[in-house]
């Protein structure tokens, strides 16, 4: 079979379910449920959440919906969030994701979410592990971070009054598809024996790798690729009845069809190969 026929087949396989907005219920993801209950139990009385968007356009198809649902959940619970990244390619997402989530929630609930009070964008921070371990050990995190992306001192925002040391960080969320990035947090985001509750959103490729950290307890919950985001989105809709369905369900359905077609191609390729050998 000519390779181009395979390309056309894949285009149609994905395009048809999307064109017809076919949305099937997502598969149940126990580890995403675990993360949901972890985020649901984060206190909004004190402390803050730190959420790292360590992804760029190359993995945004999976990491973007993940970061959207987690941020939405934290916003709904009124947990203030510091957003940052260890990779410069995340710059567009650091700005747009919280703004989009806040707008969507404002439309749905009529309440308001404000920059500086409900979230702050600390931006891209170079230095990887060195930056993370210094942040974790800092006696005054807003002072250490200095300024936000707008160039304003973090201490000028109300959100900064809720955090001084790592012990005030009640939840750490991290989304990435980059090799070694997630391990940076496992290794260095801790001080004096304290590790915040840690939730991770990985791309499908790194699912098998991420499971070893769940088993060892270094990770408290996991979103597995797009399927994890779709299931989390479903859980949010169960809890918040007025929530409008997002497009993760349609994407997940199209993805399911495409996966089955790829498996079908493996089988077909083997049959053809076997016939040729005979």
């Amino acid at each position: 079979m000519n390779t181009r026929w395979i390309y056309i087949l894949i285009l149609l396989t994905i395009g048809i379910p999307i064109g017809f907005k076919l949305a099937l219920p997502p598969a149940r993801m126990p580890v995403a449920e675990k993360l949901f209950s972890v985020v649901d139990n984060v206190s909004n009385e004190k402390g803050v959440a730190f959420v790292a968007f360590d992804y760029g356009p190359g993995t945004s198809a999976e990491n973007l919906p993940q970061s959207q649902v987690i941020l939405e959940h934290l916003f709904r619970k009124r947990v203030p969030v510091f957003i940052f990244s260890l990779t410069p390619i995340s710059e567009p997402f650091l700005r747009s994701v919280p703004e989009d989530v806040a707008k969507q929630l404002e439309k749905e609930t009529g309440e308001s979410w404000q920059y500086g009070k409900d979230w702050v964008n600390v931006g891209y921070r170079p230095g990887g592990g060195l930056f993370i371990q210094t942040l974790a050990k800092s006696p005054n995190i807003p002072e250490f971070l200095g300024k936000d992306v707008k160039g304003a001192p973090l201490s000028s925002y109300p959100i900064s009054t809720r955090v001084s040391t790592i012990k005030d960080i009640s939840f750490l969320g991290e989304f990435t598809g980059l090799v070694g990035m997630f391990q940076t947090y496992v290794q260095y985001f801790q001080a004096d024996g304290y590790v915040p509750i840690f939730g991770h959103g990985c791309t499908s490729i790194t699912i098998p790798e991420a499971y070893i950290y769940l088993d060892s307890g270094q990770l408290n919950g996991l979103l597995e690729g797009l399927a994890g985001a779709a299931w989390y989105s479903d859980l949010l809709r169960d809890k918040y009845k007025d929530r409008e369905p997002d497009r993760a369900l349609v994407s997940n359905t199209a993805l399911g069809v495409a996966q089955l077609v790829v498996l079908g191609l493996v089988v077909l390729g083997n049959i053809v190969g076997w016939k040729q050998r005979r």
Binding site: G15, T59, A61, E62, S204, R247, V250, A258, V262
Partner: peptide, 16 residues
Amino acid sequence: GSTVMARMALLVERIQ
């Protein structure tokens, strides 16, 4: 299996 899912997810997003 996971790699297939990841690559297809990228394509799904673009086609969407």
